[in-house]
């Protein structure tokens, strides 16, 4: 909590700095409702009200260096209670976007880089991906009621295209089964693409709009390539 006592040097303030950001930050009435509603308030002396005020004052370096934008889950609770409807989650996301990419904490940027390069956050090769899917598919086919189950990979003209959250082909293979069983029981005509199957889009978390566009565009490419009718929005 030592950092909380740190005095902010107002000589660093530059109120013009974030004028182009339109999250309504300058309308804050400092009521504190956001701060009281936020489960992350108090961590290292930060809270959303403080962040909003620092954006108004243009204290860029302090904000970018702070851990708070990465601990805030962009949950929108503060925005919900804010009488001025200040869009704190998107403001936080914009601050995230200002960090040097190699200083983005943890594996967020690394996962995203792998996704941009290989089509999925894990960098999982296509053969391994197909092996896992078929292996899990065979397990389902052994269960009573699911005889003859097969995973329809790259099925042209299918009705529904699905994506895969990377953790389901990493440590949580069992959880692939639920939707597949529902599809089977419903007699759905569905498919999974063998390339660019990633269902997560970490550009959202790192504040990287270009990456988000690339990942989304790849799903669209798959829809066109496989001539599907419907996309099931990634869970």
């Amino acid at each position: 909590m030592k950092e909380a006592q740190k005095i902010i040097d107002l000589n660093q303030a530059d109120p013009q700095k974030f004028r182009s950001w339109n999250f309504l930050q300058d309308f804050c009435i400092t009521c504190g409702l956001c701060a009281s509603s936020c489960p992350a308030s108090g961590i290292d002396g930060f809270d959303p009200r403080k962040v909003v005020r620092m954006v108004s004052l243009g204290l860029e370096q302090e904000l970018v260096d702070s851990k708070f934008p990465w601990i805030c889950t962009m949950c929108g609770k503060c925005e919900e209670v804010c009488p001025m409807q200040i869009n704190i989650p998107d403001l936080v996301r914009s601050i995230r976007g200002l960090r040097d990419r190699d200083k983005v904490p943890g594996t967020l940027h690394k996962g995203l880089q792998a996704a941009l390069k290989t089509g999925n956050n894990l960098g999982l090769p296509k053969d391994d991906f197909i092996f896992i899917l078929e292996d899990v598919g065979e397990e389902i086919a052994e269960e009573p009621g699911f005889e003859g189950f097969k995973v329809p990979i790259d099925k042209k003209g299918a009705n529904v295209l699905t994506t895969v959250h990377n953790k389901l082909v990493n440590t949580q293979n069992e959880d692939l089964k639920h939707w597949w069983k529902i599809f089977y029981a419903a007699g759905e005509d569905w498919t999974i693409p063998s390339d660019n199957w990633e269902g997560t889009n970490w550009g959202y978390f790192t504040g990287d709009d270009e990456a988000m566009k690339t990942m989304t565009g790849r799903i669209l490419e798959n829809m066109r390539r496989l001539e599907v009718k419907t996309l099931l929005w990634p869970e």
Binding site: I43, W70, I71, T73, M74, K77, T107, Y204, T206
Partner: peptide
């Protein structure tokens, strides 16, 4: 009015685990 679970916004891969559970 719900409360976030604490794992939203990509927080799990940030490495800030203690903060995430405090949340």
């Amino acid at each position: 009015n719900q409360l976030c679970c604490g794992g939203g916004g990509g927080t799990p891969p940030t490495g800030y685990h203690e903060e995430r559970f405090h949340y």
